[in-house]
Design a protein around this nucleic acid. Structure first.
Length: 799
DNA sequence: ACCTCCCGCCATGCT
DNA sequence: AGCATGGCGGGAGGT
């Protein structure tokens, strides 16, 4: 059916082509096909449309250039080394395209080395075919068969790419063998949603836990069950990781039942989770190890069987390759004492949970509400695993509901690829029942979870209070932390993530409290709308997650990243100053963001390393302080970095700025303290105060691939609408401004929305709008923790 | 020797 | 049954 439908839709354009791929594309043809992205898809397509959208010229030459540029960085360098590069095209890919040319020279190429066949390269080729911001008006469908042929790869490979792209809603499945290309129009929204979900899932906490465990293992450290653990577990479930289904955006949903059937396991889900990890972790560096553990359901690390772990890692590489091609991440290495760990750093745009909020200030219209609601529902769906396995599902009471829901859902989804669902409007009809249930479940679950979580936290708090030593949260600790760390230097390293220097473990604990949904401060932030829509009255944390608009994008390079961070910090800091939280509507977002981040930062900062009970006490105290101070908590993660900072206040206020002294000194100090590994260096900060240490580190590692590649591609594709450019992430500059600046232009949103999702045919706008409503998404609670510890280190590029 | 990850078998589920 | 999807992990290229 699906096909049929699709065909109908597309027939006009592609019909003939649809299934028949051009195999023969011998050289020339092939080239053309590749070169002309969309066209290729349509092959014969009558409709000119697709590629046209951007108006980008797709001459063969241009394509080659693009490909080359895209691929080249890596290959080029390699080739150069080898000496291959020189002559003909140094690019293997190119070769593919142009195999014609002398095989002699480059048979090597002709016989593509493994690398030439890499998924990353393939993905670049794939992406080269489509504009970053396709013209919605045009038919942007993708025929998998055609693409596979054109790119000379088995379809299986295309699935790998498409699945990841689908997870980012850059493509959506129309029907069998057909996808629609959305490009980056929705990317920010998607990322915002993922971030929100990631926060809700408390991935940051999970990461911390894992790290903590590592520490403990290494050092016997406190084995006592930390409060945090309990909390986390309660929230997440035994796994420690909430199992959730694919996160669907209102506008983009899977239409094929088959797709839905495997949703939970799918590469898509893994991809989303992986992305979430980046979005919620402060350093935004995630090691494969940690990612794998979390994705597996880490809590039972012990249980982990190697094979499973290995498989997960393999998959993560696949995903990472695609994400790298999208320039969302780049490979780096986190060095620990133990050795280097492969990790990836987020180089995509900074997103705030629902960053897009078009207009927070603006009152929501009824329609908006609906939208949000739908968004929320979708979130709920996501949260609950279809299986039942989901963490939330755990609650017995909920299981039944879940099952029923699932069944309903299946029915609904079962409609195969047929383009049915649409956003709210549509969904309302079809899926309405389901969503409602989901929403209810979600609400229930959240409530329950919150309760659970809150209790522990409360306990903790109480303890802390008793202890009385509270250190002021934020400020504190840099120094203290440093010391602590020193004592337990090793601890730091364990973290897979690189983070900011300071407080490893400690960060985790402290942070938690503040974040607790229950936390007063958070409550404040909640937007009524959100609360209602998304979560139960409680409001839970959800609100917390604000978007930090401030962070815009990131950027591309490490430097940018640093800058970003710095910027982010600054805002945060400011936020801290304004403890409160209750910001006027306009600021809400900012406030939220601030809150979130701060928390994360706090952790680190505060974090003392609990060496022993004493340390723990400190933590607790810190936590306590945090609670009290919650308002104050400001400094973002960057703070953590600040080992140097003497006064807490300073630290908080200026994230890392501490740099004041020479960076060299800082590094030296850090190293001694054990906060950072020798390998890592904190570069001198650019500006005083601005650069957080950690960022710097990141900065150090530069990445070859992406940078190089993207540019090429980007140039050609990116241009779309002005606003949109920002979306790409790369473009946006970050600013330190405290106030969150909306990264993406609202206008763009609108645009995108409209465009978005056109699967079936006529586009409908509605859905996308939902996404925009940040509110709904925001509902998540953010967890503030920042797991990071120090670890870190050098990020090297993979190559 | 380890890191990456290509390759394609084969299960799953829709048609 | 046939086909589209895509989970999965053996094993090989790279470093």
């Amino acid at each position: 059916m699906e096909n049929e439908k699709e065909n109908l839709f597309f027939e006009p354009h592609k019909r003939g082509l649809m299934k028949t791929p051009l195999k023969e594309s011998t050289a020339a043809n092939i080239v053309l096909a590749e070169l002309q992205p969309d066209f290729a898809g349509s092959l014969t397509t009558p409709t000119k449309p697709k590629e046209v959208s951007q108006g980008e010229p797709w001459t063969p030459t241009a394509n080659l250039k693009m490909l080359i540029s895209a691929v080249s960085p890596e290959i080029r360098s390699r080739d150069q080394k080898r000496g291959l590069f020189d002559n003909r095209s140094g690019l293997p890919e190119v070769k593919d395209c142009l195999h014609e040319h002398l095989s002699g020279d480059e048979y090597e190429k002709s016989q593509p080395s493994r690398k030439e066949k890499s998924l990353g390269l393939l993905c670049h080729k794939f992406l080269a075919r489509y504009p970053n911001y396709p013209n919605p008006a045009v038919n942007n469908d993708i025929c998998l068969d055609e693409v596979a042929e054109e790119l000379n790869v088995e379809r299986r490979r295309i699935y790998d790419i498409v699945n990841v792209l689908e997870s980012l809603h850059m493509v959506s499945r129309l029907a069998k063998n057909r996808y629609t290309w959305h490009g980056r129009h929705n990317l920010n929204k998607t990322l915002g949603t993922l971030k929100t979900v990631g926060e809700e899932n408390k991935y940051a906490e999970q990461i911390m836990m894992i790290k903590k465990k590592e520490y403990e293992q290494e050092f016997d450290f406190i084995k006592s069950y930390s409060i945090e653990d309990h909390i986390i577990k309660s929230n997440t479930g035994q796994n420690g990781h909430p199992d959730m289904c694919f996160v669907e955006l209102p506008g983009v949903e899977f239409r094929a039942a088959s797709v839905n059937s495997r949703k939970d396991k799918s590469l898509r889900v893994m991809s989303q989770k992986f992305v979430m990890l980046f979005l919620v972790s402060t350093p935004q560096i995630v090691s494969l190890e940690i990612a794998a553990k979390i994705l597996i359901g880490e809590d039972h690390v012990e249980d982990l069987d190697k094979s499973k772990f290995k498989t997960k890692i393999r998959r993560l590489y696949d995903i990472a390759n695609v994400l790298s091609s999208l320039d969302l991440i780049k490979k780096v290495h986190v060095t620990e004492e133990r050795g280097r760990k492969p990790a990836f750093k987020w180089t995509g745009p900074e997103i705030s949970p629902n960053a897009n909020d078009p207009s927070p200030l603006v009152p929501f219209t009824p329609s908006d509400w609906e939208v949000r609601r739908s968004a929320k529902e979708s979130c709920a769906k996501n949260l609950f695993s279809t299986r039942g396995k989901a963490s939330f599902t755990r609650h017995p009471s909920l299981i039944k509901l879940v099952k029923s829901i699932e069944s309903d859902r299946r029915k609904i989804n079962s409609a195969p690829s047929s383009p049915v669902k649409t956003n709210k409007a549509e969904s309302s009809q079809n899926s309405t029942p389901f969503p409602n249930k989901m929403a209810q479940l979600a609400a229930i679950c959240k409530m329950q979870l919150e309760e659970h979580s809150s209790e522990p936290r409360k306990k903790v708090k109480a303890q802390l209070a008793r202890s009385g030593h509270c250190k002021p949260v934020a400020p504190p600790d840099p120094p203290a932390n440093a010391e602590l760390e020193l004592t337990a230097p090793s601890l730091i390293q364990p973290l897979g993530v690189v983070p900011l220097i300071p407080s490893p473990l400690s960060s985790a604990l402290p942070v938690i409290l503040p974040q607790a949904p229950a936390g007063p401060s958070y409550a404040i932030y909640l937007q009524p709308a959100q609360a209602q829509a998304v979560t139960p009255p409680q409001g839970l944390s959800p609100t917390l997650c604000p978007t930090h608009s401030s962070k815009t994008t990131g950027s591309k390079d490490s430097t940018d990243a640093t800058a970003e961070k710095a910027a982010g910090d600054a805002p945060k800091a400011s936020g801290s100053s304004t403890p409160g939280s209750l910001l006027p509507a306009p600021e809400r977002q900012g406030a939220k963001n601030r809150n979130r981040e701060p928390a994360g930062e706090r952790g680190p900062k505060r974090a003392g390393v609990p060496e022993d009970s004493g340390a723990k006490k400190k933590f607790k105290e810190d936590l306590k302080g945090l609670e009290n101070v919650s308002a104050l908590m400001v400094s973002p993660t960057s703070v953590a970095a600040v080992p140097v900072g003497t006064s807490p206040a300073l630290a908080s206020s200026h994230p890392l700025p501490v740099q004041n002294p020479s960076s060299a000194i800082v590094n030296f100090t850090l190293q001694h303290l054990g906060l950072i590994s020798p390998s890592v260096q904190v570069s001198a900060s650019p500006g005083p105060g601005t650069m957080p240490v950690s960022p710097r580190i990141e900065a150090v590692s530069v990445i070859p691939e992406n940078a190089g590649a993207q540019p090429g591609r980007a140039s050609s594709y990116d241009s779309p609408a002005p606003g949109q450019n920002h979306l790409n992430g790369q473009s946006v500059a970050v600013m330190g401004t405290q106030q969150p600046v909306p990264v993406t232009p609202k206008g763009s949103h609108l645009v995108t929305e409209n465009f978005f999702r056109t699967p079936g045919g006529p586009t409908k706008l509605t859905g996308s709008s939902c996404m925009d409503l940040d509110g709904a998404n925001k509902t998540s609670l953010g967890t503030l923790f920042i797991p990071q510890r120090k670890l870190e280190v050098s990020t090297e590029d993979v190559h």
